[in-house]
Design a protein around this nucleic acid. Structure first.
Lengths: 111, 111
DNA sequence: TGATAATACCTAGATTACCTATGTATATCC
DNA sequence: GGATATACATAGGTAATCTAGGTATTATCA
């Protein structure tokens, strides 16, 4: 297991909601976009992403819509829902709290 | 599962190594100390901490030594090893890289 | 004195969200 | 026509958390 893998737990959903809050995207695009924006750091595996999107959809946080391209290829675009937006706000807050606590331990201001 | 739980994965070991790099501690003390220093945020469960300490010991990153108090009570103090110190340096670096990547996604500088 | 809380260690089993590996299919490039 | 990129999907393995339970000693307080 790569080191990131464990750190990813708990943040993967936030990353997905964050991306989709900016614009609808399809799975393959999400993988590429996360890699691009993180300067190569995030490389979501398909076995991670697709089940994650399905879980988010089942939870009503995103909605997938198939779109047929002129080429005949199918893509499933995921849109964030209102519930997803609210969850993102909460996730962001949780992340900030976690960060604050981490900083108190791993970068003690003074002792 | 509380929201922290998932975020904890991958950082729990770093937190433990970080604490123990400052001074040897015993399990119960670690729980209390993490809670105190994080202003109540981190509340390690015993079922999380003790197995984690045992894993760290098995990996040669820490070493536990029983100490008998005058009262007759036994405590197991964990000391960080040289290998543990080196691991801590690496963990800190991994954490910083992860943070940097997260910030690129969840707080885009400009797009 | 006796009950309760705090201290101090431990483990078993459930859960969950990653990963690897694999499958299918189309499009593009040389 | 063969390799690579695009595009979705699932099955099963793994690992680290949690819940829940156990044992035992010490301190507090009614």
């Amino acid at each position: 297991m790569v080191p990131q893998a464990k750190l990813m737990k708990g943040t993967a959903n936030s990353l997905l909601l964050c991306l989709l809050s900016q614009q609808p995207m399809y799975g393959y695009q999400i993988i590429k976009e996360l890699e691009r924006r993180s300067a190569g750091y995030f490389r979501f595996k398909e076995g991670t992403l697709y089940p994650a999107l399905h879980r988010l959809e089942k939870a009503g946080l995103v909605m997938g819509r198939w779109r047929l391209l002129p080429s005949g290829r199918q893509r499933k675009y995921y849109h964030i829902t209102d519930k997803g937006h609210r969850m993102l706000v909460e996730k962001r807050s949780q992340w900030q709290n976690f960060l604050a606590a981490m900083n108190l331990i791993i970068e003690p201001a003074s002792n």
